[in-house]
Write a protein that binds this DNA or RNA. Sequence first.
DNA 1: TGTATGATTGGCT
DNA 2: GCCAATCATACAT
Length: 207
Amino acid sequence: MRARGRRWGRADLTGDPLLVARALLGAYVVAGPVRLRLTEVEAYWGSKDPGSHGYRGMTPRTEVMFGPPGHLYVYRSYGIHWCANIVCGTAGECAAVLLRAGEVVAGHDVVAERRPGVPVRDLARGPGRLTKTLGLVGEDDGASLVGRGAPFALYGPPEPVPDTIVRTGPRVGVSGPGGDGETYPWRMWIDGEPSVSVYRPGKVRRG
DNA sequence: TGTATGATTGGCT
DNA sequence: GCCAATCATACAT
């Protein structure tokens, strides 16, 4: 049996979202019988960040992101998929880390039922696929990952993920503040992981 | 009340 | 590489 990392609490998610995102690489998300090792994440930082849903202030949808760290922010993407974030930062500011990709390390039987015919490396390769594999839906928006009785849980990496295998780059599908397709390098992933999603540049706006 | 848009994916050319 | 699917959200009217 592989050693298991320490269960994370609210304190582990408090602070700079970029540092939290880095720390989440290699961490485990537990949803019922399914456990996922995170291999790719993106940071979103509220009012500093035109790419964030919370950039223009709090709305009913983004309310969770302004709350205390340790909760899920789940939203519908393109009317079809669900995408999941872990709220981090500090209560009152808007910060979250989008879960983009991971590797299934437990609960394969359940996942196989949920996602028949899907190749192993594609099970959680991309944010929409990841939520499907974990079974996350809109009703899980606001649910907690920390504390006793939380429906979900988060465990730190069993072994530290060294900086030498961590890569950073522009976020996927987000156009940056410059407008020229410039983006913040707030996407982070573990190099060489087959589950890491394919990069696609954000839509170029006319101009 | 109407409408444009998107932190995507899967299927087809 | 290109494009449709499909709907909640945000914002204009």
